[in-house]
Write a protein that binds this DNA or RNA. Structure first.
Length: 928
RNA sequence: GGUCGCUUAGCUCAGCUGGUAGAGCGCUACGUUCACAUCGUAGAUGUCGCAGGUUCGAGUCCUGCAGCGACCACCA
């Protein structure tokens, strides 16, 4: 059976074939009946659906590896583990991709027309969409592919429509004209979350608005009252012969002044009181606008006077609502100046218009300089264009009523966050939630189910498409041209793929789900909205745990991105090092709340941990399989009487690792899971246990001993492969498949991936065996260390004197004489101290055991003596510190007893070490 | 402006409920004889950002400071 195993783990020879086998065996699918009829405990994760056009990147690699680890863990625990996969139609993103595509043919979407364009997008999606799902298979994801969903699937679309209508009926969806974020490139409205602020160095320009002559006395009065914004022409050297009084306002967007309809001051600002109600000439436009009073204006900020552009600023809009100021839209969809501005500016792009306006104002002597100004400019999250706030008629969701229960779920702890700190972020957002603009002026997405009747002016929000107006019977119906924000459908992801609004078996079985695993960036976009919808529509949280992982970055800490070219292709990594290597590397770096840095210029060392470990696992398994030989293997219980201390030790260590790994899995502490399995497998099983049992497996210590070793080895390997399986499903399965099944251990599970998760067996715990083995390890290490230190050659066998502090250790070491000989090249072991005057290397172990290595003629005496003097000096210092601590009454009286006891032991051990050193020193006469 | 986080070995980071520090990678030396050189063995490197405080005792708790970062925010 062993010949087929290559000396190096070759993932390409193993992984694709195993995945195919799992798939064909239907191992990932969970029918609703598993929960509803068999009564199995469900565990549900819904995948954060990648954009349908997406190509797998390392962020997906991380996100999905985590989910796969969790789902495999729960599956092995016997849960009905459902991981629902799928893709998101990603409205703007996908539409942009296809628009770029047809642009190469010199076409725009308008050239094609709506129907043809949408058809084109569908064709594109059907051709290339879902690539990413196949890519997930390459990294081992055990999704329930039979349930693969797409947010535009008919039944998911039906759910979207049902929700829209239902929320409208409850007055939670409404249509209104407000300032929204508008992307002049995508030509659509955006939600607040989709307009991402980007801080940058900008300028604050100061403009002068001349007051009408009748207001000059008031201006003078205001000036006398200390009104900073009031000035008089002719006072400044660069004024061009104008007369009279003016107001100074400031803005970061001078072009918007063409749409100003008022200037506002705070009603309680005594300085400006004389001017309220006065008129000013709005430069360049020939219009006259009033000075109004509104509490929004902060008298402390700037001059305490604000220009009001209601159609292009949310605050100004509200001021206008309150003060009755006019609203004047001065821009087109594409953010060029429209017909509401004077001729010279018409048609200019907003940034051209900015320059033109400033130039024109300067020419009229109405510019008052500018200052550098750091401020945040909102940009479109899909195309990075500067967003233009704009008055527009859109559909909104009233969020406050929905936010309440979602907030409560967090506050009462039923919704848990990992890392916990995200709870505050989530709650803060919900506490300050604003209504959600959900209509998008796009073609790709869920069409808004609203019809407008031209005959009776009715607005009809309908579950099914109407033939004629439900109110007046007219056929003059127009459907709203807009589609819904893509997140409006994603928020139903825990519900709609399972059949909601129908009360399906799937829904009953798999709602509510359990764990939401995603990146913190979409906490608001998605996570919070799913919570709100789950509670609103179903009265239950869609999941109870939110695990937010870090970002994958390059070696410099920059986010991996296409434009920077610093990405790492997961498939390339899989091809080179294997999926297991990639998964393990990611999990090993996946500490809670931290980002993962990977060097894209050196993937070799970036993934070395995983690759090396996969190979180690493979080779330890390979060795085991080769060493077991033919013949049945019995369970450890059956050979209990023949188990030796090293067998009991490794079983005990396995039990302890099992507990730690299980705990790590439960708490999302995946790097601890990785570290713990790594250490157990490599540092204990491979480095020690395998080395210890080699002679026994070779039959050198009798048949019973061999059987006990075989049983233990098979048992431990089985156990650790199970622990490791969620992290490294391929290599573990490849080995486990070949591992003999112990007699009397019940029937063998069909697949490792559905084998029961190990339960730490309490009777395997064996502190005594652990203590003994620790003693043995210390002995081996000490001899090795002494040999190195004194330059004893590898080929040179030595005699060692040992005086064991614990008499039991002697029996243990004698039982392991073979391994000791091999591991430390010890030929003769004497249980006595050295003869008087013997020259050699000595060490005293922490437990007080003394080790002496005669070095007849091999040692440079001068060098060793100097070394010992240094060593003694150091230890005296350390011991003095420990003794001082023990002499401290406060310490001995107030510290817990076991801490004091430990400190005493430490002092004792230090004294013993010091005695040993002094004795050793005594063997090197001379010096001083 | 508000909120939160980070600062531990050359690099990347662990260190959960306080008991004088660990891993991986890298580095140094030696070693290919029988699972693995994607290996083995041994080894070097830390005033745990700075300053105070609480405590018998602090990387671990508190306060302040410095540097870095994230998120939120309508201040013209």
């Amino acid at each position: 059976m062993s010949q087929e195993l290559a000396p190096r783990f070759d993932p390409r020879a193993v992984e694709p074939e195993l995945y195919r086998r799992w798939l064909e065996g239907g191992r990932f699918h969970v029918p609703a009946s598993a929960v509803l009829e068999e009564g199995r405990d469900p565990y549900v994760i819904v995948i954060p659906p990648p954009n349908v056009t997406a190509v797998l990147h390392m962020g997906h690699g991380l996100n999905n590896t985590i989910q796969d680890v969790l789902i495999r863990f729960r599956r092995m625990q016997g849960r009905a583990a459902e991981w629902l996969p799928g893709t998101d139609h990603a409205g703007i993103a996908t539409q942009n991709v296809v628009e770029r595509l047809i642009a190469r043919e010199g076409l725009t979407r308008d050239d094609l027309g709506r129907e043809a364009f949408v058809k084109r997008v569908w064709a594109f999606v059907e051709e290339t969409g879902g690539t990413i799902l196949d890519q997930l298979k390459a990294i081992g994801c055990s999704c329930d592919w039979e349930r693969t969903a797409f947010t535009l699937d008919p039944h998911l679309s039906r759910a979207v429509r049902e929700v829209f209508v239902r929320l409208y009926e409850q007055d939670l969806v409404y249509r209104g004209e407000y300032i929204i974020n508008w992307c002049p490139r995508c030509l659509t409205a955006l939600s607040n979350e989709e307009a991402e602020g980007e801080e940058g160095e900008g300028r604050l320009w100061h403009l002068r608005y001349p007051l009408v002559e009748s207001a000059w006395p008031a201006a003078e009065a205001a000036r006398a009252a200390g009104a900073e914004a009031v000035g008089r022409f002719g006072e400044e050297p660069d004024d061009q012969g104008r007369a009279g009084w003016y107001l100074t306002v400031s803005t970061t967007r001078p072009e918007t002044m063409l749409g100003d309809t008022a200037v506002a001051v705070n009603p309680d600002d005594a300085r400006y009181a004389p001017l309220v109600g006065a008129d000013v000439h709005l430069p360049l436009t020939g219009r006259t606008i009033p000075v109004v009073a509104d509490a929004y204006v902060d008298p402390e900020f700037g001059t305490g006077m604000v220009k009001v552009t209601p159609a292009h600023d949310p605050n100004d809009f509200e001021i206008a609502q309150r003060t009755g100021a006019a609203v004047l839209n001065v821009m087109t969809d594409a953010a060029a100046m429209n017909e509401n501005v004077p001729g010279p500016f018409r048609g200019l792009d907003r940034f051209e218009a900015r320059r033109a306006v400033l130039a024109a104002l300067a020419a009229e002597g109405l510019g008052a300089g500018d200052d550098p100004h750091v401020h945040t400019v909102p940009r479109c999250y899909r195309c990075d264009t500067v967003v233009e706030p704009r008055l527009s008629l859109q559909w909104f969701v009233r969020m406050k009523p929905l936010a309440g229960p979602a907030l409560e779920a967090s506050r009462n702890g039923s919704l848990r966050f990992t890392p916990e700190r995200h709870r505050k972020v989530y709650e803060h957002w919900l506490e300050n939630i604003r209504d959600w603009c959900i209509s998008r002026q796009l073609w790709w997405g869920h069409r808004i189910p609203v019809w407008y009747c031209d005959t009776c002016d009715g607005v009809h929000v309908l579950r099914s498409d109407p033939e004629v107006c439900p109110a007046c019977g007219s056929a003059e119906l127009r459907q709203d041209p807009d589609v819904l924000d893509t997140w409006f459908s994603s928020q139903l992801w825990p519900l709609s793929p399972f059949g909601w609004p129908d009360e399906t078996d799937d829904l009953k079985a798999f709602y509510p789900g359990h764990t939401m695993c995603t990146a913190p960036e979409i906490l608001f976009f998605w996570v919070a909205r799913m919570v709100m919808m789950g509670l609103e529509l179903r009265g239950e949280l869609p999941f109870t745990e939110v695990y937010l992982h870090g970002t994958v970055r390059d070696a410099q800490g920059r986010k991996m991105s296409k434009s920077l070219g610093n990405g790492i292709d997961p498939l390339a990594v899989v091809g080179r090092y294997g999926a297991d290597a990639m998964r393990f590397t990611l999990m090993n770096a996946c500490a809670i709340g931290t980002d993962i840095l990977l060097d894209h210029e050196d993937t070799e060392s970036a993934f070395a941990v995983g690759r090396n470990f996969a190979n180690k696992v493979w080779n330890a398994g390979r060795f085991t399989l080769m060493s077991l030989g033919e013949g049945p293997v019995r369970g450890v219980d059956a050979v209990a009487d023949d188990l030796r201390v090293e067998d009991r030790w490794i079983l005990s260590r396995l039990a302890s690792a099992t507990d730690a790994v299980t705990d790590g899995m439960e708490r999302f502490r995946l790097h601890e899971v990785a570290e713990r399995t790594y250490h157990f497998f490599w540092g204990e099983l491979a480095d020690w246990y395998l080395e210890l049992v080699k002679p026994r497996l070779a039959g050198e210590s009798g048949e019973a001993s061999r059987e006990a070793a075989r049983s233990t080895l098979v048992t431990v390997l089985d156990g650790v492969l199970r622990l490791l399986h969620p992290l490294m499903p391929f290599v573990t399965t490849a080995l486990w498949d070949r591992l003999p099944w112990p007699e009397g251990a019940g029937s063998r599970p069909g697949e490792l991936m559905v084998a029961p998760w190990p339960r730490a067996s309490a009777e395997w715990r064996n502190p005594e065996a652990e203590r003994m083995l620790a003693g043995f390890q210390a002995l081996v290490t000490a001899v090795r260390s002494l040999r190195k230190e004194y330059g004893v050659g590898e080929g040179q066998s030595v005699t060692v004197h040992v005086e064991a502090a614990d008499p039991a250790l002697r029996g243990v070491v004698e039982g392991l004489a073979g391994p000791l000989g091999r591991l430390a090249r010890v030929e003769t072991l004497l249980w006595s101290g050295p003869e008087a005057g013997a020259v050699g290397a000595a060490d005293v172990l922490h437990d007080g055991t003394r080790v002496f290595l005669p070095l007849a003629g091999l040692v440079d005496l001068e060098k060793e003596r100097a070394r010992l003097d240094r060593e003694i000096e150091r230890l005296v210092g350390v011991l003095r510190g420990t003794e001082a601590k023990l002499a401290n009454r406060n310490f001995t009286a107030r510290a817990p007893a076991e801490v004091v006891a430990r400190e005493r032991e430490k002092a004792e051990s230090q004294r013993a070490q010091l005695r040993g050193l002094e004795e050793k020193r005594a063997r090197f006469p001379g010096g001083g």
